[in-house]
């Protein structure tokens, strides 16, 4: 595996399967009364969150703590960042404190990449969501959840619906799921598909109804209502009518198909409440699986050769 996890494209098929298989073993822990392993005792994981995301931060925090790592939460609010400190100075501070892994969430696309390749830190860098770029651990937990319900993803049809343009979840999933052999279709109004999407390893469609009966998975993306103010769509109601997963559309899915959502949901907008709460919705399970997958990522990145003491410059690949 690479030294950092910045993009879904950083994972080969073998890497991805290793993470998912490791996560499956760790997932069993969640059902035990004592959920902790001593694996990362003495290691320090910093959650560096420049953007509010309680869900993702808590998930990484739980993952690190279950592996007995020390966790430092560094949130931009109430920290020196709000006083104008640069990413570089923040990174140098973390380095000086001896972080072994930095989990970074940032509103600027590429900020984790910058942290990993600029030489400011020697830690492993894990992208926990950067701007409108990627969110690779979300894609891993999505793939993990799909495998639990559908088995091998080779040839499985995954339909991802919504604001692909602004979605880091869609980008990471498109890359990872196609690496795992799934057949991915992105469905969105033309305004919410990025220019150049034809070069991605996916199909695209403007029409959700034609994709439903062949889907093994339907993943609904969060759509911000404010997007209508920038003319991406006329109104929340029209969006919902054309691209929302309501009961009528839900009824057209194959019986084995599952419904996913990375959260937080806009109930009544991209997904109706009844569909979100249905037995074939795995949305809550995604959260549980998120902890297991992030444990696997931390374990695999940190428990190899001593990553802290080696002198490899940041950004280089290190064989585990």
């Amino acid at each position: 595996m690479r030294r950092h996890l910045l993009s879904g494209a950083d994972l080969t098929r073998e890497d991805a399967l290793l993470v998912l298989d490791t996560a499956a073993e760790l997932r069993a822990l969640a059902d035990r009364p004592i959920k902790k392993l001593p694996t990362l005792r003495g290691r320090t994981v910093v959650n560096l969150f420049f953007e509010d995301s309680t869900r993702t931060r808590i998930s990484f925090e739980a993952a690190a703590k279950r592996l007995s790592a020390d966790v430092i939460n560094f949130s931009a609010k109430g920290s020196s960042v709000s006083k104008g400190e640069s990413l570089k100075d923040t990174a140098l501070t973390l380095e000086a404190m001896g972080a072994d892994a930095v989990v970074i969430r940032h509103s600027a696309s590429g900020a984790p990449h910058r942290l990993a390749t600029s030489g400011w830190v020697r830690s492993c860098v894990i992208n926990a969501g950067d701007g409108t770029h990627e969110h690779p651990t979300q894609a891993l937990l999505d793939a993990f959840t799909m495998r639990r319900h559908l088995g091998d993803l080779d040839g499985r049809r995954v339909t991802i619906v919504g604001d692909v343009l602004h979605s880091r979840v869609a980008r990471s999933n498109a890359l990872l799921l196609s690496t795992l052999g799934a057949d991915v279709t992105l469905v969105a109004p033309p305004t919410l598909l990025p220019v150049g999407v034809e070069a991605w390893p996916v199909h695209t469609s403007y029409d959700l109804d034609t994709e439903l009966d062949k889907s093994d998975v339907v993943m609904m993306l969060r759509v911000q209502r404010e997007r209508m103010n920038a003319a991406f769509f006329p109104s929340a109601r029209e969006y919902s009518r054309r691209y929302g997963l309501d009961e009528r559309r839900f009824a057209r899915l194959p019986d084995h198909a599952i419904v996913m959502h990375p959260g937080p949901m806009n109930r009544g907008m991209e997904i109706s409440a009844n569909v979100a709460d249905s037995t074939r919705s795995v949305i809550v399970e995604q959260v549980t699986n998120g902890v297991a997958v992030r444990m696997a990522v931390l374990y695999l990145l940190l428990s190899g050769p001593d990553t802290r003491l080696d002198d490899e410059p940041a950004g280089q690949e290190v064989e585990k």
Partner: peptide, 18 residues
């Protein structure tokens, strides 16, 4: 806008300058 709007901006998740 952050960069040329095209294949690369779509992949990088950057606001395009068409």
């Amino acid at each position: 806008a952050q960069m040329n709007e095209g294949t690369v901006s779509g992949v990088l998740g950057m606001r395009g300058w068409p």
